[in-house]
């Protein structure tokens, strides 16, 4: 029997997801044995034509990491979709937009202005910006054009499965490969990690408060952090309340709160808002009855950059997707 054809591809990503696959080390060799890798830019030669020449659905599964922000990336995602029976969104960028998705707080113009003009080390008195087409004495040079907005993979093509995490840990990746090879995949649309909140498997869960007595929002750098106690009990925002489990509490292990790279549980429409709602219910104040709306409002001001925090990994997949930009 022919080995199943599998493709790995990257769109706008940092390379961490590729490292995550390489980190499988010996397990990777096992996978490589069981499948026929038809595309893997980091390790194998690749020509777009070869993929184009495949029959529709000839690839059993494509694992695509990275967000989508150029036309080229979109085309490649569409091509792989057409040629694949299954598409896996691999890692947080493809899944929910991740930290590079914070670029949806601005747009191309905002980025250009800062990067090429106003950054302190840049000397650009003529106001030169990179262009899609440039005439040089010898000919013409081209660059791809960027979308103003970062898109997740499933905003571009249909996605069958999601492998969460920034980056996905080895066991989550291996489980996905194994399920694929053994034909054990769950229902389409599933995120391949347990559908329980990180809190529910967290060692600190016992000290997790129902309600907070301290009316304070502490930031990680401001206080000594007790390594045994739930972050919330220490007034520090931890997103474990709404984040899918499966990472092995990687951040909590080194005494840092969760920032939600595994994304939401099933059925959540807006991960950032769901987290905010959860945090807002826990941060109940003891003497609330004595507080006016204004007092409460002042207190909430202490929770700085709520959008950046609650959407740290998921702005592109939120209901609004991006900051609304002024029309010119």
């Amino acid at each position: 029997m022919a080995k199943p054809k599998v493709a790995f591809y990257w769109n706008a990503s940092c390379g961490g997801c590729e490292e995550a696959v390489i980190d499988l080390a010996e397990d990777l060799l096992k996978v490589a044995d069981a499948v026929d890798i038809v595309l893997w830019p980091v390790a194998l030669d690749f020509k777009k034509k070869d993929v184009e020449n495949l029959k529709d659905n000839e690839i059993v599964a494509s694992f695509i990491n990275g967000a989508v922000r150029t036309e080229e990336q979109k085309e490649m995602a569409e091509l792989l979709r057409a040629k694949s029976q299954l598409v896996f969104a691999f890692g947080s960028c493809a899944h929910e937009g991740c930290i590079p998705g914070l670029a949806n707080f601005t747009n191309r113009e905002g980025i250009f202005e800062r990067v090429y003009k106003t950054t302190e080390s840049t000397k650009n008195p003529e106001g030169i910006f990179p262009k899609v087409k440039t005439k040089v004495p010898e000919g013409e040079l081209t660059l791809p054009e960027f979308f103003d907005t970062v898109y997740t993979l499933d905003q571009t093509v249909e996605v069958d499965y999601y492998i969460p995490g920034c980056a996905p840990p080895p066991d989550i990746i291996m489980n996905a490969f194994t399920a694929l090879l053994e034909g054990n995949l769950p229902e389409k649309g599933s995120v391949l990690s347990p559908n329980i909140a990180l809190c529910d498997e967290c060692d600190r869960n016992e000290s997790k408060p129902e309600k907070l007595e301290i009316p304070e929002f502490n930031r990680v750098h401001q206080i000594e952090i007790d390594p045994e106690k739930c972050f919330l009990a220490q007034g520090i925002i931890c997103m474990g309340i709404s984040t899918r489990s499966g990472c092995g509490q990687r951040c909590i292990n080194v005494n840092m709160p969760c920032r939600g790279c595994f994304g939401p549980l099933d059925g959540v429409k807006d991960f950032g808002l769901r987290t905010m709602a959860g945090i807002a219910s826990i941060f109940a104040l003891e003497n609330e009855e004595n507080l006016s709306e204004e007092d409460l409002s002042k207190l909430m001001d202490k929770l700085v950059d709520p959008a950046g925090l609650f959407y740290m990994y998921s702005l592109p997949s939120s209901i609004l997707r991006r900051k609304r930009m002024e029309e010119k």
Binding site: F105, M276, I279, A280, E288, M300, P306, A307, R322, K323
Partner: peptide, 20 residues
């Protein structure tokens, strides 16, 4: 309703960061 208020207060802050 205090919970509702806290949520609305935070939501307003998030909205204004997103220019709504």
């Amino acid at each position: 309703n205090y919970k509702t208020l806290r949520r609305v207060l935070l939501l307003k802050r998030m909205l204004s960061q997103l220019n709504i």
